[in-house]
Amino acid sequence: MAEMAYWEAIRRAHDEELANDPMVIAMGEDIGVAGGTYKATSGLYQKYGAARIIDTPISENSYTGIGIGASMAGMRPIIEIMSINFALLALDTLINAAAKIRYMSGGRASCPIVMRTPGGTAHQLAAQHSARLARMFMSTPGLRVVTPRNPLDAYGMLKSAVRCNDPVIIIEHESMYNMRGEVPDNEVFRPLEGAEIVRAGSDVTLIGYNYSVHLCLSAADKLSAMGVSAEVLDLRALRPIDRDTIRRSVEKTHNVVIAEEDEATVGVGAEIISVIVEECFFALDSQPVRVHAADVPVPYNRSLEKAAIPDVDDVVAAALKVVGRA
């Protein structure tokens, strides 16, 4: 069992999948000679060469489309988009093509691509570099959307995504690339579906995905010191959503907080609350609360940015509210 950083886990998954199957390639801006903005492909250009680790021009829609086309003819491209903000330029090929090719061909064509991209706010990157957009992809049938929270999932879900025959969007986070965690030495595949109870508790369920799971875990520590037992649920996959695991947890704790770094409107929390209402409305003892970003473009100013983005204390306050302690 080795401890490694999130970016190293992604790099290892690339390396193993590239070694395993000559049809696997990686494409993206600065991923080859430069080794990748987050080092997630560092050293691979030297090892696998320019034909498999492809440095692309700044042409997101078309290089993503090239990846999709190549996948239709048997290749397994791992497409990196430097930031989810730039994925907006590739929405045509991702949503109009990749998500629909299997369906509109009546199952006769498929495009097994992986698109990896960091979504989320980091430090004062301002409005055009702080998009989250998870909600946009999770609302698109024909895609799989996953949000690995730690090196193990970053590694094992990327490997599964490469093998899976559906288009998979992996949303990473700028603030997670240096997080460390254990990854087994042997090869591991982590499932692309299924929420996970990361910490068991009995008073309230804190639901997160991607970086917000870490807010929930820190909040659970603080709550524990206050005598509140919080269960933390990592959604792991935003599409499809694991309704059973959510239901079981809510039936156990009866109180729910959802932490999302996205804006709330038409968002992840809105969807989860709908699931809860549909699955187990009568198990609720209190109104669910969403902890979420303010409904504004993310500001540059440090204190404004902090005010716009949820933090651990916001999750603690919401949890105290739903258990009747505030």
Binding site: S62, Y63, G65, I66, I68, G69, A70, A73, G74, T93
Partner: peptide
């Protein structure tokens, strides 16, 4: 356009 180039890449 790009889908064609991708098929060609393959």
């Amino acid at each position: 356009f790009p889908l064609a180039a991708g098929l060609a890449l393959a």
